[in-house]
Design a binder for these strands. Structure first.
Length: 233
DNA sequence: GCGACAG
DNA sequence: ATCTTGTCGC
């Protein structure tokens, strides 16, 4: 799908302090209301690192929601790698991950109506996790589904599948802590962009099958870790 | 000042 | 994140 040149993001070439300031500015543009086109194709995104961090790898799996499931029909999938440009700094992970994710989207033929990302949405100190930055950049509805907490506090979640409790940071509800599987570490679900808090949770629940992760993210995760992941399929 | 800290 | 085999559960 057509995407602004990822290079633009690299060219920001920001110091940590500048990146922090930019996050705050961009966060003001995040939309927390449902602004969807009818959802048919949903993209699951997973970004990870190889070679001790030297390489960034982004995997995308596009599912057809209207075709029914589970199992959901896989419409397209892409794995894309490029040299890592920035170190890992808590709170600035999105700058490290997003360039590769944009490279992967640029190589995707399908334009999804919804994006689900492995990482935080607004459940971030400055309300701009990877899912928000990616959603803004692509101008698509995006949801963050993280496997652990970055910031905020919450009550203990019941240990049974389906139980949930709000994630609160500085008096704001920034997400939902969701027990996706009984006796398994909970997920941290938050809106990325163009999605309400309620819809972010609803879509996540809709894609939850028997596993800890919702299907889009789970399949992207799995695709990323395949030995023969040579690109497309 | 002391911890915490997405992937 | 990643390094890794077996093992338990659906």
């Amino acid at each position: 799908m057509p995407v602004l040149p990822p290079e633009t993001l690299h060219e920001w070439n920001l110091s940590p302090a500048e990146a922090v300031a930019l996050q705050s500015r961009l966060a003001s543009r995040v939309v927390l209301e449902d602004r969807f086109a009818p959802v048919r194709r949903v993209a699951g995104v997973d970004i990870g690192f190889e070679d001790d961090g030297a390489t960034t790898r982004a995997a995308i799996v596009v599912l057809d929601w209207q075709a029914g499931g589970p199992p959901f029909e896989v419409v397209e999938q892409v794995v894309y790698r490029e040299p890592t440009r920035m170190p890992y700094i808590p709170g600035l992970l999105s700058f490290r991950e997003t360039p590769a994710a944009l490279g992967a989207f640029a190589r995707l033929e399908t334009r999804p109506e919804l994006v689900m990302v492995d990482g935080q949405g607004i459940a971030h100190p400055r309300r701009l996790g990877v899912a928000s930055l990616l959603g803004l950049w692509l101008d698509l509805p995006a949801i963050g589904v993280a496997k652990s907490r970055l910031c905020g506090r919450h009550d203990e979640v019941g240990d049974t599948r389906g139980e949930q409790t709000p994630l609160v940071h500085k008096g704001e509800v920034i997400g939902t802590v969701l027990r996706s599987r009984t006796r398994v570490k909970p997920l941290y679900v938050s809106p990325g962009h163009r999605v309400s808090q309620a819809a972010a949770l609803e879509w996540t629940l809709r894609f939850l099958h028997r596993t800890k992760l919702p299907e889009p993210t789970r399949l992207a995760d799995r695709l990323a870790s395949r030995r023969d992941a040579s690109g497309r399929r």
